[in-house]
Simulated assay, not measured.
Amino acid sequence: MILEHALLTVKPGHASAFEEAMTKAAPLIAASPGFLGLEVRPSIESPGTYLLLVRWESLTDHDPGFRASDRYQHWKALLHDFYDPFPTVTHFSEPLPV
Rank of each mutant, 00 (worst) to 15 (best):
S58W: 13
D70C: 01
A77P: 00
L8M: 04
P27R: 01
H14L: 15
K76A: 10
L8Y: 00
E19L: 10
Q73F: 03
D84E: 12
P33I: 02
E19P: 01
S93T: 14
P42V: 02
W75Q: 07
L52Q: 07
A17V: 09
H91A: 05
L52A: 11
L38E: 05
S43V: 09
R55H: 14
H14T: 11
H62P: 04
G48H: 11
H14I: 02
P64I: 06
A17F: 05
R67Y: 03
L28N: 04
I44W: 00
P47E: 05
L36A: 14
M22D: 11
P95Y: 12
A6I: 04
T88S: 12
R55W: 14
K24W: 09
E19M: 10
A6F: 02
L7Q: 05
P27T: 00
P97C: 04
R71E: 15
Y72G: 01
L3R: 12
K11M: 06
A6N: 06
L8A: 04
A15S: 15
S93N: 09
L96K: 09
T90F: 01
L53G: 08
A6L: 00
I29Y: 05
T88G: 10
V98T: 12
F66I: 01
P87D: 02
L79I: 07
V54Y: 09
E45M: 09
L52H: 07
L79Q: 04
A31W: 07
A31H: 11
I2Q: 11
T60F: 07
T90S: 14
L59K: 15
S58A: 15
A6Y: 02
F82K: 04
P42H: 03
S69V: 04
V54P: 07
V40E: 03
F86C: 13
P12V: 06
L28C: 05
A31M: 06
A31S: 15
F86N: 14
A15W: 12
G34E: 14
G34T: 11
D81F: 10
T9K: 08
K24R: 14
R67K: 12
F66Y: 07
D63C: 06
E20A: 15
L3M: 12
T90V: 13
A26N: 08
D61R: 11
F82T: 00
L7K: 04
T88C: 06
L3I: 14
D61S: 15
S93D: 13
V89P: 01
K76T: 03
R71W: 10
T49R: 15
W56A: 14
L51H: 13
D70M: 08
P47L: 00
Q73N: 12
M22Q: 15
F66A: 02
L7H: 02
